[in-house]
Structures are given as C-alpha cells and as structure tokens.
Design a protein around this nucleic acid. Structure first.
Lengths: 290, 290
DNA sequence: CAATTCGTGCAACAAATGTTTCATGGCCGA
DNA sequence: TCGGCCATGAAACATTTGTTGCACGAATTG
C-alpha cells in the first residue's frame, strides 16, 4: 500500500486501524472518536472510560509508528492546536498557481456556493411545500445530473409519504407515467441549461393534465418553467469550474422536503417513525456503540 | 469573598488579576495568553517557558478560588472543549409560529448550510482528487439518501472518464463488485450517521483488496472511514430540520469532480467535448433560441 | 496433537507530575 | 532598628503518570 501523505496523526491511525488486533482497534476507535479527551486527560483515565487496559494505549501508539503514547498525544495536540493565522494567509499565498492551486480551486468553489445559497428565494419554497402538502400524489423528474436531485427528493419525501411519491420513469418508459398525471397531483421538474427535451415534455404533460407543476430551475425563462405554478430558482453557474453547480438545487430540495414534513404534522411524524422502525428492524444500520 | 459570576475560568482569572502579587500576575497573563498550552502541557513545562517557578501556578490557581492547578486546568479544558454539534438545541429553538414560520424555516436552513460549506477542509479534497486522477478505475458507493450523491459523482466523472467509472451495485448484487476491487483502483464510499452495513462492507472490501479508499462522511470515526486513505468531512447535522443535510456532501462531490477534471488536462477536456458532441447529436437538449 | 506465536491483562517499575514545606530576602509599621 | 508579614525560589514530598516485564490463554502452524 502506498504512503498517503502523513497529514495528520488521526489519519495515520485510521489507515493502520483495520490491520490491528481487536483490542487495539477498540482503543484506536475510542481515541479517534474522543481525540479531544485524548489530548487532555490521562492515559489511565481514558482506559477506564474505554473499558480497556492502560497498556493498550501505549501499544497502540507503538503499533502505528510512535515511540509511545506521549509522542502520539503530542502529535494529536499539535494537530488540534488552534491556527493563529486564519484563512487569509492560506488564501493569499496560494492563488491559481503553485502546488496548492487545487486547494485554492476547492476553497473558491465552496465559498462561491456558500454565497449563492442565501440568495435563494425562500418564499416560493414555502408555497411549493404547501402545494406538495395538499397534493394527492407527487411525481418527481430530473434527467442527467439533475437525476441525483430528483432521487434525493424522492427518497426524503417517501420517508413520510411512501405511497404517494414516485419518480417519473422508474417503473417503465417515461411516457407511461406522463399519461397518469391527474389534477390534484403535483409534478416536480428539475433542470437547468442546457435543458433536456425529456424534462420539457414532462412539464408540458403536467400542465396539460391540470396537475400542479413545480419547477426547480436556474432561470425563469427555462422551458420547463413555462406554465409552472411554482418556480424555485437557484444559481447553477455561480461557482467556478466546468460543471454547473447542483448545490443550490439540493438545498432547495431539502428545504422543500423539510417544510413539507413540517406541514404534515404529527401524521407525517408518525409515518417517519414507522419507516425508521422498519429500517432498524431490518438492521440496515450499524448499531451505535456506547 | 464574593463569587464573581463563574462564567468562564478565563474571565475569573482576568477579573482577579489586578489584585494579585506581581509574579502571579505574570503567570496569570501567561496562562491567559497560552490557554491551549495550559490545558495540554505540564505545569513544569509551562513554568520553564514562562520563566517562572512551577509553584507559582499552584498558587495562582488557589488565589482565584480553585483547589489547585489541576482543578483550574480541568476548568480550562472544559471551557475549550469543542462544542459537539447539538442538533437538539437547534431544533428546540424558536419553533416560531405565525404566517411566516415556514419561510423562516427555509431561510434558517439555507443560512446554516451556507455557513457549513466554508468549514469543509479543502486540502483532503485536493489530495483525494489526485488519487482519483491516478486511479485506473473508480468505484462509487452510497446508500439510501447518499445514493444521490454517489450518482451525481458518477455522472460527472463519467463525462470525461466514461470507461473507468462505475457505481457499485448497478450491474448486479453489490457482492459481485466487491470481489472486483483491485490495487491501483479507487473506491469512494459516501455515508453518514446512521451508517448502513452495506457501505461499511464496501469500505472493508476496498481496504482488503488494496484499493485506494476515499470516504465522504460526517465524522472521522465513521466506520467506513477506518482504513481510508482519504477522508472528506462534511456536516450532516448542521442545519435545522429533521433530515440530515446533504448539501455539504454534494459540494464535496462536485469539487472532487472539478479538481479531478482539472488534473486531467487536455485529455479530459477532449473526452468531455466528445461526450457533449454525442449528446448534442442525439438532440438530447433543447436548442437555444434567440 | 504438540510447539509456537501472538494477543491480552496484571502488576511492578522508574520517571514525571502537582503540591507542600522551608529558608531567604525585601517591605512596611512600630 | 527591630519584628512581623508577605512574596518568592529551591528542594523534598506523595501521588500519578507512562512504560515494561511476566504469565496465561487462544489461535496458528508444523
């Protein structure tokens, strides 16, 4: 296995963890999960809380290349030390070129997207959520990269309205679903430039069928926004890079789901609890440990 | 002696400072200025650096109402403890009613997520992108709500590396793919609390096969982060509402794709152009009209 | 099945920690 | 000037710290 850059003692620990004896894995996990206590409290103290032998900590440190627990803790302490000079020094020194050009690209991107989120109009989202709340059935559409947004929305809505939410095109060709739209139902279409023919077709079908059309798009003049009852705007081109940004669309989708759930009241809450109980019973999730 | 509002040990110190003997003032100022070292390093060590007598630290602690240096340090340690994300307090807060309660929920959510994005560590993303660039093949995994993130990443990476990127589990049961992992390949696993067994299985299989493991998770102690060569952290619980937030994970995925594309240089650019040309030829997109 | 390695808990070890005591020296009031 | 007081440093103290040697048991190997 290749050496993956000795960035932090915690990552060294993580990497070595799986190849360690069982007990050492336990204490290793404990250290990773409680690294602040690891730097401040004593070895024996930690051992008592972790329910392990104090010696295990020393052995762990040696197993991952340190001379002893003291040295490991010193490394953790340094890694945790609050950085005195904050973002500007990093930002100024590594613009565009140099070895850190990639890092600069990432920070620029994240900042741009963070700046874009508060510009999303909230009012239309709340109104659209009410429309979803009133809808007898909810269809969701998104193609190409927007498919991920559609699926997330589908997933979250189905957590508390399982029988009434459906992705367009999952159970056969899209066209079969298009004929099923009815008044009183809601159809969500997600898309941005360049717009796919398929998404426009869905929007038109929804409009023609008299269903409530909700468009999540990057522009009011997007073709699937024509005739839409609710248009939720986000900025797809706000961040640097070559692909349009979906962060805004995801944020909208999640807000939409959250408000819709909130409108659902205790009934929605109960259905969510049922769903979660079923998932837990099927032991889908890794149980949390003390 | 009056209790001076036990807000923080540091403020107690500052208040009592002027009425202390000269040497104790010096030591007190040193502690206030280096409180991180005060919690991590030993008393004698600090004394050496401050140029003072070790006993002065004990006397200082007693002078401001503690039983000894140990107790003062414990108080400083607790005051410095990183605030573990408290979703409940956020949820319990201002459950505002009235007509605009829904709008307020949306704006709160968007602002919280916007605040979370710049906190994402950029360096690991850049390093992980380089690993992807070097990988002969890229596998992507995400279950439940993380599936959407996995699919977005899959989509964007396939735009310029179509033959080398694959979602785990699309062409049959996951287990078939798990056996296909090879050294020199990269496996991306996305997940957050509660963690699914399936994602942990994939991560372990990747590690066992000697493939480069990249984990996108909400915690360093996430089970799929064990043994990972790269861990990309985001805050799933940062925003109000009942569902964990995927905005950070999406932002990471997009940054990862962008940097990987950037590393690909002209070759990647050419492949992307080919893909776009093919899509255009199939008239997937609505042509832009004046 | 025997031999051996390896992982693990226990207990004793030396080193380091925080505390206390004691001696010194400066300061102020009588 | 004397005597008490307090601040201060150095050294001795008991305690706690991290470490290591040892024994026992499980897993592995020949």
């Amino acid at each position: 296995m290749a050496e993956p850059a000795k960035s932090s003692p915690l990552s060294e620990l993580r990497i070595a963890l799986p190849s360690l004896p069982m007990r050492l894995q336990e204490v290793g996990r404990f250290v990773a999960a409680n690294d602040y206590d690891a730097t401040t409290r004593s070895m024996r103290d930690l051992a008592a809380e972790a329910g392990a032998d104090p010696a295990a900590f020393t052995r762990l440190a040696k197993a991952i290349g340190y001379s002893g627990w003291d040295e490991l803790r010193a490394a953790l302490t340094e890694a945790r030390r609050p950085s005195q000079i904050a973002p500007f020094s990093v930002r100024a020194k590594s613009r565009r070129h140099g070895p850190n050009a990639d890092v600069a690209l990432v920070t620029d991107k994240l900042e741009a997207e963070a700046a874009g989120l508060p510009r999303i109009p909230a009012q239309p989202i709340a109104e659209a959520a009410r429309a979803l709340h009133d809808a007898k059935r909810i269809w969701i559409t998104g193609y190409r990269s927007c498919r991920s947004v559609a699926e997330l929305l589908n997933y979250e809505l189905r957590l508390f309205r399982p029988e009434q939410v459906q992705l367009v095109g999952v159970s056969g060709p899209d066209d079969l679903d298009l004929g099923a739209f009815r008044p009183g139902e809601a159809v969500i279409v997600i898309g941005f430039l360049p717009y796919t023919h398929a998404s426009v077709r869905v929007a038109q079908a929804a409009h023609r069928a008299g269903a409530t059309l909700i468009a999540i798009a990057d522009s009011l003049s997007a073709p699937m926004a024509e005739g839409a009852d609710h248009v939720l705007l986000f900025e797809a081109a706000s961040s640097p890079g070559f692909f349009p940004s979906l962060t805004g669309a995801i944020a909208i989708a999640q807000s939409l789901a959250a408000v819709t759930f909130s409108l659902g009241g205790t009934a929605a809450k109960k259905r969510l609890e049922n769903t979660e109980a079923r998932l837990a019973a099927a032991s889908i999730y890794v149980s949390e440990k003390g």
